[in-house]
Amino acid sequence: MTAELILKLAGGVPAAFAACLGFGIVFNLRGKTLVFASIGGALGWLVYLLASGFAGDLQRYLLATVAITIYAEIMARVQKTPVTAYLVVSLLPLVPGGGIYYTMRYFVSGDTGMFIETGLHTLAIAGALAAGILPVSSLVRLYGQFKKHRLAVN
């Protein structure tokens, strides 16, 4: 681990936790869910930063999202709250909000080349996040159906 990465981890991970906590309050999350969702956000950012050593830009987003989704599915079952509550807040440090802003800034200022480049990159990040969420939640669903089916047969 380089010194630069350690510095990023020390500043970024607590900041990601704080950012999720703030958003959790704005989005009206209550009690334990608020804290656990914020921990999920810190976890995602940790994976994102650690993956910088071996993975490319989009793969880092994908890996972090897979980690968050697994965490969210587990927490949703332990705490008996819908997965969405965890997913929405924990994913916030990763979602390409800044990307949309920069894309539309280039659009408004008439810089077509940068508009297209940033726009496609933003869509790709959003796609990477979606591609990270869907397989995990589909597998969980499949497992649930499988268990229900087995119970029905027995």
């Binding site: 950012a19 704005v26 929405v88 994913l91 916030l92 979602v95 390409p96 909000g97 800044g98 949309i100 802003y101 933003t122 869509l123 959003a126 796609g127 996040l129 979606a130 591609a131 969420i133 869907l134």
Partner: peptide, 22 residues
């Protein structure tokens, strides 16, 4: 950009890609 994170629709664009893929 830090303050704008409160306004930008990052969740909306992620959910939209999720809906489209699903």
């Amino acid at each position: 950009i830090g303050t704008l994170m409160n306004l930008v629709p990052g969740v909306a664009i992620t959910n939209s890609m999720r809906d489209i893929i699903a």
